[in-house]
Write a protein that binds this DNA or RNA. Structure first.
Lengths: 347, 347
DNA sequence: GCCTATAAATGGAACGTTCCAATAAATCAA
DNA sequence: TTGATTTATTGGAACGTTCCATTTATAGGC
C-alpha cells in the first residue's frame, strides 16, 4: 500500500529510457519531442504513479499558477456566491484558486495572507475582514504582488476595488420608501468601521435630504450584520419617542431579523412597517413576505474581479482601474402597498 | 514601488552579516542561536521585505503544513459551516487550510485534487462531488496521502468517513410523522447516485415498516436537492391518486421548497401537510413556519474530521476509524399539532 | 597556561524541477 | 561525400531552502 519513496522526474526518465530533460519537456507539452517518445514517457508517468512537484518547478519558473481568494465570511451566502463566481472564470483559465476564510478576523487574515504568499501565489483577491488596518497589505505591495479588493475597500489604499454602487443602491431603496409615503425612516445594522457602511448610509442620507426628510426624522442604529443584529435594531428603534415606519437595512440578513422581530411583536412586515434589504441573496425572494432588496450581482462582481486579476497577472502590473457594479432595486412585498398620507404620520 | 528581485535567505544573511544557515535557524525558531544574533537577523528580514519560500523548503523537508479541503458546494450553508468548523481546529493547530470548491462536478474535482497534490499538501479532507467514481481517489492512495471523507462516502472505499447518522436521523423523523397520525408518507428529493440518499431513504423505509405503514402508502420522489427540487417533488406527489399528508425531505432546501409550493396552492405547512427537513441549517428556525428538522451538527462534524486528519498526519498513517455523528430531531412548527385519526386517512 | 566540553555559527550537498547551451541524429543541397 | 540545416535529445547549472558535519568561539577545570 504505502508507496516507495515519491517518484520524481528521474524515475520516469529511467523507466522510459530517456533523459530527465525529455521528461520535463513532455510534462510541459512541448512540441519538440517525437510523438512516440512522448507516448513512452507518458506511459512511464502513469506506471510509477508520479505526481508533479509544483514547488520545485516554481523554484525555477518564478511564475506560479495559483491564485488565492481571501474571503471574510464564507458562511454568508453573499460572499460564497461571489467566490463561486470568481472560481468560474479561473477554472476556464485553467487555474485552480485556493480559498481561505478569515471569519472577519484581522489577525486570522494576517496569517492567511502570509501563508498564501509563502505558497507563492501569483495574485490575491481579497474581501478584507472588518477592522483591517491599512498596513496589513503593505507587505504585499512591497513584493509587487497583484491584489484586488472585492466588495469592500480600505480607507486609503491604492489597491483596485471591485464593488457594487452602494451609494446609489441605498439612494434608490430610500427613495422607494419615501415614495411609498414614509416620513420617518431608519437605517439598520452595520458598523462604522466598514467603508461600505458609510457608502450605504451616505446614499440613505442623501436621498432623505433630496426628498425632504429632515434629519431628525431619521434614526440610524448600528448593529451586527446578522439576523440577530436586525432584531436588536428594531427593538431599539421602536423604543424611540417617534418610531420610524420603514427601514433600510444594511444587508438582507439584518432585514430578515427585522421582519422576524416585527412578527414577534404582532406587526406585519410590509403592511405595518416597511423593510428593504441589501444584497438580494437567494433567500430574499423566498421569504414571507418576499423581501424588497437591492440586487448587487455578487457572482457577476466575483467574475469581474477574477478577470481583472487575470489581466493584472498577464500584464505584470499591480495597478488596475476600480470597477463599480450597477445595482438595481428589486421590489417585492416587504414594503407593502403605498402608504396613505397622514395615516398617523403627521409630524 | 516594484521591488527588486525577490529577497532570499542569502540577502538576509548578507544584510545581517551572518551565514545563510544562521538565517535558516532563526526562521525555524531554533534555540541554538544567540538571542542577539536572532534579533539582528529578524531586523534584516523585516528590512528587506523577505517572504519565506515554502516551496523551496518543502523540497528538503518533505513535510508541508498545508491541508486541502475539497468541498462539493460552498454555496450550501450546510457545507460552508462544516468547512468553517474544520478551519477552526486547523487554525489552532497553526495550519492554514486551503479550500477548493468542486461545484458538484467530478471533472472539476479531479482537477482540484490534482492541483492540491502538486502543491504538496499534507492531507486532504474531501466531501466528494455527486457522481464521483471510486477510481478518483486511487492516485491519492498510491502516494499514501492521508484522506478523510466528510459528510459523504463512496460506495466501496477504504477511506475513513466522518458523517452523521443519516439512517437514524431519517428513522426519527419518520417516526415523528407517524406518531403525529400520518398514514401516507412521502420521501422527497435527492438522487440515488448518492450514498447518503440510500442511508436516509433506508431510515425512512425502516421506520415505515416497523411502525406499520405499508409500502404502497409511501411515495418516493427523487429530485434536485434544492428549493426548486422541493417544489417539483410536491407537485408530483400531490398529483397521485392518494396523495401523502406528510413528507420527509432529503434536506432543508428541499423542505423549504415544499413549504413554498404548499403555500402557492393555498395549503398551510404544518396544518394541511407536515414537512420535516434534514440538516437543520440556520434558516430552519427562522422560517414561517419554523421547520422541524434533523440536526446533524455540521460544524461539529467538520471539527471532528479535522481532528482525525491531524492525527493521521501526525502518526503518518492513511487509515483511521469512521466516525458517525449523533443526530437529533428538532421539533418546531412545520408538522403542526397531532393529527386526529380517521380525518380522511382511512385507507 | 593547556585541554576538554559546550555553545554558536558555518559551508556544502541535496531536494525536484526548468532552462540553456550543447550534442547527436536525421534531412537536405550541392 | 561533405557541409549546412533542421529535428530530437541531453547534461549541467540554477532556483531557495534544510540538514549534516565541521569549524570557530566561549567557558570551565585543573
Amino acid at each position: 500500500m504505502a508507496s516507495r519513496a515519491k517518484a520524481t522526474i528521474l524515475d520516469i526518465a529511467r523507466e522510459a529510457g530517456v533523459s530527465k530533460s525529455t521528461v520535463s519537456l513532455v510534462l510541459q507539452g512541448s512540441g519538440l519531442i517525437r510523438p512516440e517518445t512522448a507516448v513512452k514517457v507518458r506511459k512511464a508517468i502513469e506506471d510509477v504513479g508520479y505526481v508533479y512537484n509544483r514547488g520545485a518547478a516554481n523554484l525555477r519558473k518564478a511564475h506560479s499558477n495559483v491564485i488565492g481568494m481571501v474571503i471574510n465570511d464564507l458562511t454568508n451566502p453573499f460572499f460564497a456566491e461571489m467566490a463561486v463566481g470568481m472560481e468560474r472564470v479561473f477554472q476556464s483559465a485553467g487555474i485552480v484558486p485556493f480559498i481561505a476564510n478569515t471569519a472577519e478576523n484581522p489577525v486570522r487574515q494576517e496569517e492567511v495572507l502570509k501563508s498564501l504568499m509563502e505558497q507563492g501565489v501569483a495574485g490575491l483577491i481579497v474581501s478584507p475582514a472588518r477592522g483591517t488596518t491599512s498596513g496589513a497589505f503593505r507587505r504585499l505591495e512591497m513584493v509587487g504582488l497583484p491584489v484586488v479588493f472585492a466588495m469592500r475597500r480600505l480607507p486609503e489604499s491604492r489597491i483596485p476595488v471591485i464593488a457594487p454602487d452602494n451609494h446609489r443602491g441605498a439612494y434608490l431603496a430610500t427613495a422607494h420608501l419615501i415614495g411609498k409615503g414614509h416620513r420617518r425612516l431608519a437605517f439598520f445594522g452595520g458598523s462604522s468601521d466598514l467603508v461600505v457602511y458609510h457608502e450605504r448610509l451616505g446614499g440613505f442620507r442623501e436621498a432623505c435630504e433630496a426628498l425632504g426628510i429632515a434629519k431628525r426624522d431619521t434614526i440610524v442604529v448600528e448593529g451586527e450584520t446578522s439576523r440577530k443584529g436586525g432584531i436588536a435594531c428594531l427593538d431599539t428603534a421602536l423604543a424611540a419617542a417617534e418610531p420610524p415606519t420603514a427601514a433600510l437595512c444594511f444587508n438582507d440578513a439584518v432585514a430578515f431579523g427585522v421582519m422576524l422581530a416585527l412578527r414577534k411583536r404582532g406587526l406585519e412586515p410590509g403592511a405595518d412597517f416597511a423593510v428593504v434589504g441589501f444584497d438580494d441573496v437567494v433567500e430574499a425572494q423566498h421569504y414571507m413576505p418576499a423581501l424588497t432588496s437591492v440586487a448587487v450581482d455578487s457572482a457577476g462582481l466575483g467574475e469581474r474581479a477574477a478577470h481583472v486579476m487575470l489581466k493584472m497577472i498577464q500584464s505584470r502590473t499591480t495597478r488596475a482601474e476600480d470597477h463599480i457594479g450597477a445595482v438595481n432595486l428589486v421590489v417585492r412585498e416587504s414594503c407593502g402597498p403605498d402608504r396613505h398620507k397622514g395615516m398617523g404620520d403627521a409630524a
